[in-house]
Design a binder for these strands. Structure first.
Length: 582
RNA sequence: GCGUCCGUAGCUCAGCGGAUAGAGCUCCCGCCUUCUAAGCGGGAGGUCGUUGGUUCGAAUCCAACCGGGCGUACCA
């Protein structure tokens, strides 16, 4: 397309434009929504209407002629049509399609993977306080972060995943007081539970297992020491609980970064000096302030309180300075939307420290509402009716939990329908995609494994022998033009149409990955998988794979094998398993 | 008040500058002698929150307004 455009410009066919660089109209090839408009379409003639000063239709016709002159293109294209108001529609010849299947066979689990970009990315997510179990909101953050990390890896980045442990400050002292009180009570002491503390029922199990481990050996220490020791014991148990739960969702972090280590390592003290050095601080009312307003925030922010303690912002700035020190090209933070007000403060702090704020992206995830029997399940932290992530996983399973938390874009509120997530049918996309994968496996089993005749009870040989299948696999791979697959187009128009649609979908996977990476939106991959599953079902419905004609069976089995592979690749990014049978 | 996210079919959501706005659920009507019917096809269902603006062209971009969520600390 680009070549045709350039050639047309050189020949003076584009009016005032003498070169493709003379205007800013980009060559964009898109996939039309309607199949009537061919396999691909280009709308650039519409955009060229103004600079070329000619009607879009005439420009499109001119460009189409130049495409016809290009022999390399003509080999792949079956048809080039111009349609009102000025689209150029391409219908692909079969060569392009068969090469796609062959490419899937050759690349396998790497089909769709982008080449190495030589860029280091840090994705920091969950980072929940170690003061209780993870709830469904953390679950969303966790799943989104994990999917994004998978996606970025698949998109050619080198990715580290990090969990920031907020094991310092007021909330951890609070935890200590609560844990200490519960510890004493569980061991028969009559002490009061802190009135402003965390709900007892959230902590009781953790304190109980601390008691089980260490017994009453700390009962005699003073209150201060008790809060500190028992608090830390419970804190570690909570972190371990979070780690185990996340692992059950397939999430594992490369680094668990301790906030406490920033204080003991002097990073926080240093960062205050660093702010000072760049001239962004002042003292007022006994506190130490950051000139955040100059840096884009709505007001100035306190770095060190009049009590002498540093604020969360100061600690977070110190933390982020270590990220910059670790030489990442891109740092992505996944935060709950309730923290959106902190974004300008952190970005401002980063700028004040002389770092490049554009390397730091904050993605905010909106809330999750759970519904059951068509009713939203009311959640309240104070009333203790928060739904825990573990409850959801227990109820609907890890795969469905991941799918529903991965599918939506982060800025949309999720309505998680617990009843739907448990259904085994078309209406549940998580199931439907897995079912499509299992169906591909079933067909391959049917073709390759011996079966038992239900009437005679005798074992029957499979239609395709193991030896033949090995030959087929070699042929799929060795034949880069995919000539084996031309048999797919010999059948009747309906079947060929469905096969073509299926292959065309496989072909778009790499560009879907690229778009999802650019948009930081792994949910696109979830939807792609759903569309692919649908294309497979439609093909399956109209045509058998295993037929009497060996060349047709061979071609179709190759297509099924490729579809299974791409489904697995897509499911891999969103972290949902690809079952062999259901 | 200010900031931010969201308003698309009865419901849950895609689409985010282009061709007749798409799926699934729900409601009707069809399709199993053959690889998983846990499936497929057809029908019904819309002033894309409202009003202006930019554009050859707006659900999509801009502005104002109307609804709803979240936030607005010397808490973390």
């Amino acid at each position: 397309m680009q070549q045709a455009f350039s050639a047309a410009c050189l020949d003076g066919a584009m009016g005032p434009l003498k070169s493709s660089a003379d205007c800013s109209v980009a060559v964009v090839i898109e996939k039309p929504k309607s199949a009537e408009h061919g396999d691909f379409a280009c709308g650039m003639a519409l955009k060229l209407a103004a600079p070329v000063k000619t009607s879009p239709l005439r420009i499109a016709e001119t460009l189409a002629q130049y495409i016809g002159k290009n022999e390399a293109c003509a080999a792949y294209l079956e048809k080039v049509e111009v349609a009102a108001p000025g689209f150029i529609n391409f219908t692909l010849g079969t060569a392009w399609l068969t090469e796609t299947i062959s490419a899937v066979h050759n690349l396998g689990s790497d089909y769709g993977r982008a080449p190495d970009r030589d860029k280091k990315v840090l994705v920091e997510y969950v980072s929940a306080n170690p003061t209780g179990e993870l709830h469904i909101g953390h679950g969303r953050n966790a799943v989104f972060g994990s999917c994004l990390a998978n996606l970025m890896k698949f998109g050619g980045y080198s990715v580290d995943q990090e969990f920031y442990i907020n094991d310092y400050g007021e909330q951890i002292l609070q935890l200590g007081r609560c844990a200490w009180a519960l510890y004493q009570r569980l061991l028969g002491q009559a002490v009061d539970y802190p009135t402003e503390g965390y709900p007892e029922e959230f902590l009781r199990d953790f304190v109980q297992s601390a008691v089980d481990t260490v017994g009453d050996q700390y009962l005699t220490v003073g209150d201060e020491e008790g809060c500190s020791i028992v608090g830390d014991l419970v804190k570690d148990l909570i972190i371990e609980n979070q780690r185990t739960l996340l692992k059950s969702l397939g999430i594992e972090f490369d680094v668990w970064y301790s906030e406490r280590s920033l204080h003991s390592g002097g990073n926080v003290v240093d960062v205050l000096k660093e702010f000072d050095k760049h001239g962004f601080t002042y003292e007022k009312d006994g506190a130490y302030w950051l000139k955040a307003q100059e840096l884009g925030d709505e007001r100035d922010r306190v770095l060190r309180k009049s009590t002498g303690a540093t604020t969360y912002l100061a600690n977070d700035a110190a933390y982020h300075l270590t990220k910059y020190g670790r030489n990442y090209d891109l740092m992505i933070n996944i935060w709950g939307a309730d923290h959106h007000g902190q974004v300008p403060g952190l970005k401002g702090a980063v700028r004040a420290l002389g770092q490049d704020p554009s390397k730091l992206e904050v993605i905010l995830t909106q809330m999750v509402n759970l519904s059951r029997d068509g009713q939203i399940v009311k959640m309240s932290k104070r009333a203790g009716t928060v739904i825990m992530l573990s409850e959801v996983i227990d109820e609907v399973g890890a795969d469905a939990t991941r799918y529903y938390l991965a599918e939506s874009s982060p800025q949309n509120t999720i309505n998680f329908d617990l009843d739907l997530a448990k259904k085994t049918g078309r209406e549940n996309p998580a199931f439907y995609i897995q079912y499509a994968h299992a169906r591909c496996c079933a067909i391959l089993r049917k073709a390759l494994e011996p079966s038992t005749n239900s009437e005679s009870g005798e074992t029957e040989q499979p239609p395709i022998s193991a030896h033949q299948w090995q030959e087929f696999l070699q042929e799929y791979k060795g034949d880069k033009q995919g000539k084996v697959f031309t048999a797919l187009f010999d059948s009747d128009a309906v079947i060929a149409g469905h096969q073509k649609a299926l292959i065309a979908r496989l072909e778009t996977f790499p560009s879907e990955v690229e778009e999802a990476v650019q948009a930081r939106n792994p949910g696109r991959i979830a939807r792609f998988a759903y569309d692919l599953a649908n294309d497979l079902q439609k093909f399956y419905e109209v045509s058998r794979v295993i037929t009497d004609d060996l060349s047709v069976s061979k071609a179709r089995l190759g297509l099924i094998f490729a579809t299974k592979q791409v489904l697995a690749n897509a499911l891999g990014i969103i972290g949902v398993s690809a079952p062999e049978r259901m």
